[in-house]
């Protein structure tokens, strides 16, 4: 506020004593325009994020079927989850399996392609776009439908195997293979971590490689002793992001299993089970409790990752 406007604001009214402006009016007159611009974000943040989070926390302690008022039941939803719900354990197991296998495989594949693309080949932007495309399309319903068609008993994959005299199983309706089909779909969406790996590889100073080449290090040794350690901050970032994505994965399992998580609950992802509880059985209170457990699991995993990162993530400074 300028000296002049401050003087105006504190000037005595016509017939009385001086009025000191309130804190709010001072903040408003100093930063009003800024807050006005922030308003849409505030509305979105509080209305669509904070509000639902707080509401779901409350609902997780209630019995709520969308049609009647929520009924407070304390921690009963959580107790049931850990003591009397085999589907909760099954969905947890499926989701952990999915995360444990899909994330490392996806990261390894993304890193391998990034290393290939980092060799300064011609037409790099085109290859980069082609490899990134699955990440844009991968989570869509269309790709999940395509995947189902590819891996069905009479799908393209089995037609291809038949050319070599191999009788392929029904990949998506056989509980032995169904989860692996979804893991393969996730690995195929390697574009996003690949782009980040590529950016990380570009950050490694060329001098390091030149020093190693003068010292006679083979490409294999350079990768394990220089490239990978210097890339660990990027590996860490990608691992966290992809793990969270993995825990949240929903669409592929929903489409491929027709929303059931079958065969024999082998594709019953945690989020799919949560969806079933909320929108098929209208047990909103229980679904909210499931959502909060997922949040805690993801938070614990992320926290554990940060704790261990000091032993394997190498920051330059």
């Amino acid at each position: 506020m300028t000296a002049r406007s401050l003087a105006d604001a504190t000037a005595a009214p016509a017939g009385g004593r001086a009025v000191t402006p309130s804190v709010w009016s001072r903040i408003w007159s100093a930063n009003g325009a800024g807050y006005l611009f922030l308003l849409p974000w505030f509305i979105g943040f509080f209305g669509l994020t904070v509000g639902p989070i707080v509401t779901s926390l409350y609902l997780s302690f209630t019995n709520f079927d969308l049609l009647t008022d929520p009924k407070w039941i304390g921690a009963a939803n959580y107790v049931r989850m850990f003591t009397a719900d085999p589907k909760f354990a099954q969905s947890m197991r499926v989701t952990f399996m999915f995360v444990i296998f899909s994330v490392p495989l996806k990261l390894a594949f993304a890193l391998a392609i990034a290393l290939l693309l980092n060799r300064g080949m011609r037409g790099l932007p085109i290859y980069r776009a082609i490899f990134y495309l699955p990440s844009l399309l991968g989570a869509s319903v269309a790709i999940a439908v395509l995947w189902r068609t590819l891996f069905a008993g009479d799908g393209v994959i089995n037609d291809f195997l038949a050319l070599f005299g191999i009788q392929g199983p029904s990949w998506i309706s056989n509980p032995r293979y169904s989860l692996w089909t979804l893991i393969l779909l996730a690995v195929w969406q390697f574009g996003s971590p690949m782009i980040i790996f590529l950016a990380g590889l570009r950050q490694i100073p060329q001098d390091m490689y030149e020093a190693a080449s003068l010292e006679g290090a083979s490409k294999w040794r350079v990768f394990w002793k220089i490239t990978l350690p210097l890339l660990t901050p990027v590996v860490f970032f990608n691992a966290i992001i992809q793990t969270i994505e993995g825990f949240k994965s929903f669409t592929p399992a929903f489409i491929i299993s027709g929303g059931t998580g079958n065969p024999i609950n082998s594709t019953l992802f945690y989020t799919l089970y949560l969806y079933q509880e909320a929108f098929a059985f209208f047990r909103m209170g229980y679904a909210s409790a499931l959502a909060w457990v997922l949040l805690i699991v993801v938070a614990l995993f992320t926290g554990f990752s940060f704790l261990t990162s000091r032993f394997w993530v190498h920051y330059d400074d």
Partner: peptide, 18 residues
């Protein structure tokens, strides 16, 4: 380069930070 019997000191030092 590795068989020329040469060692080089770089402007940036090129030390491996990890």
């Amino acid at each position: 380069a590795s068989r020329r019997g040469i060692a080089m000191v770089f402007q940036s030092y090129a030390l491996y930070p990890h």
